[in-house]
Write a protein that binds this DNA or RNA. Structure first.
Lengths: 211, 211, 211, 211
DNA sequence: CATGAATGAGATTTCATTCAT
DNA sequence: CATGAATGAAATCTCATTCAT
């Protein structure tokens, strides 16, 4: 009488479908992936999939949200602002995680989601919320660093975080657009910015490397 | 046998079609835009459009190139590396240009093109080439600045440029994703990095992890 | 082996389903109503409904019969042919009943059933039988009235009844098609025909084309 | 440059499609007819049909309007109220036309359209308008007949016309529901009502036909 | 070169029905 | 008997592209 299926049965099925969809989307993009692709990849029938999602668009939107959550999960997996680690440590962690083959793999999907956000209010909301939330988590740390004089106190703490997250995103763009780009050199630049070694000192030990 | 139409007639028509397509792509994205949309927007018939482009994909690819050219044109419009202006001046120019309503308008299209690049070799090539070319143009300047000690000489000049261009792209992403974000504060952070005022004090409490 | 459920349990369930189906059919018609609609409206599961009806068609056919029975019940509720009442009295009763909001409500369903009858043999049979049966019941009365000279004796008694029932149906059609039509005036005409007051003077200027 | 197709080309195609659809609808009803049926019957491709109608519903609605026009055309083909013919003559004409095999053929479609009218505003409007217009045309005649004393002057002229048209419709219903019904006897009753011979005289020459 | 009607494979979605629990 | 997830054939509709005029 009462449901005989495990209570999280439906959740599991949804996840199964989204996993399958993610594979398809990665391979072909949102709009070149057909529902048939998703049926095949998920091992479910058309009707079954439509029991869990109202439309293809619904799957795309859910994917946008899922994907954001994946990114947030990555952020959460970093050391966290509770210890002595300065922003550079955290950034290092980020770049480390983003350099994982697993993370790289999702790069095209992330770009697609950004593009989708321009036209899909729910996705935009979801991204904006997550961005805001994850930067919130880091603001106290950055403000403390500003107080200690590590970073200019004139700057908006959230904007500092956003700038660094854009550098991280940049790595994903670089990945997609120019797979032969020297990513390590790029990471070095980003870390130098975070560590304050980008502009070493106002022209002290001029190690001139004239071409 | 000789063309009965003025030689730039075809060019004008192509431009007319690409303008119309750009409007459509901005509004709906590449894959949700139908050829019918383009016919309507361009005021031309199906046959006419197909006289100038072999396929929809052809239009998309051309759009990628157009978009790159537009961005390159913006770069070219900056003061240029021939005078005394440090990188910050150039960045300032970039951000200024990117803050134009006209430039903002194209942001979603740029994101769409990045997403497309993941699966369209021709577009990827076109972007990669342009990125490479425009950074090439700035490398001498950056290297000179490194020589002068403005930026750490240990870093790869091209990567420095790429990092800054990612910060610029970041502004576009921010635009799309969170229209209420404080863009000016973001720009301030980016400029501070370029000017060397991001880390006010030269890294006192030594989290220097010099390689 | 003996039924564990009360014997009228099944009947109650059937009625529950048919009630729900009637609501759906009224709202959307036979063919636009889905079984899912009926599941929802009845508060039963798919399996449960299919325990009581073999197919959707089975429900539609049963609905045709139900509807006929409802109409027959209305006829039966009239004074009946056993007293002195002339046909007009009976007609008056009919129209009175058909003017009830409850009866009006079923008008679209009746039309739907007529349409269905054209292609569903079972429904056609069911309607034809019921029509025949209910007119059978009134034939003695009409014949008596003809004998008394109230109605021309040259006419077929059953056809007289059918004609009047078509006038009643007409009210339903009028309802559906033109909700602002003056139904009372229409009823007056019908009653005048039944009462013999439609042609006040006995056909003076002879358009009598007596057969 | 200007259309090279005959100006009524599109009209002709629409008609072609509607003709094909009518055949299908007659055979299977609105909702059992598939678009494929219509493609096949019309000899056109899916795309071609959808160039002329936005949706299946659009075809159904157009069919409702077309069908009404067909009926109006029939009415218009009757002698008309300009001569000396009394209502009975006109009714006779109607019944004569409605008894045509061609007219009979459309009966199921008409019933279906009535059913559809309950849920399709455009169809309802179209029917209501046509009903109103065709009864308008007959009102002067009926009023004159009432003035002459042929029909009771107490009755609403329009309602008289509507009642007779319902008797005509009734013949169509009878056709569909009970193909073996004695239609001629039914017509006799209707004509008797129109001629004033239904209630011959208040019980004068009692031709008692006691069973 | 321009037109726009036509194509038709293929996309998304629906829905009557079944069946394991 | 009841449940409701699953099925999958079939329905509606789309859209890049062609081609006769």
């Amino acid at each position: 009488m009462t449901p005989k299926v495990p209570e999280n049965y439906r959740e599991a099925r949804r996840a199964q479908i989204l996993d399958a969809a993610a594979e398809c989307f990665l391979e072909k993009g949102f709009h070149q992936t057909t529902m048939q692709d998703i049926f095949r990849a998920s091992g479910l029938s058309a009707g079954a999939v439509y029991n869990y999602f109202e439309s293809k668009d619904d799957i795309v939107t859910a994917m946008g949200e899922i994907s954001r959550n994946r990114n947030v999960a990555m952020v959460s997996a970093t050391p966290g602002p509770d210890d002595e680690a300065p922003l550079a440590k955290i950034l290092e962690s980020f770049f480390g995680i983003m350099n994982t083959p697993d993370a790289e793999k999702w790069a095209p999907l992330d770009l697609e989601i950004y593009a989708e956000a321009a036209r899909n209010e729910r996705i935009r909301k979801s991204i904006a919320d997550n961005v805001r939330m994850s930067s919130d988590a880091l603001i106290p740390l950055v403000e403390e660093l500003q107080a200690r004089g590590a970073y200019s106190a004139d700057l908006d703490a959230r904007s500092i975080i956003v700038a660094f997250s854009m550098l991280v995103q940049g790595m994903q763009i670089l990945h997609v657009v120019d797979p032969k780009a020297d990513l390590d050199a790029y990471v070095e630049v980003c870390l130098a910015i975070a560590r304050g070694t980008f502009c070493a000192a106002p022209a002290t030990n001029s190690n001139s490397k004239e071409a």
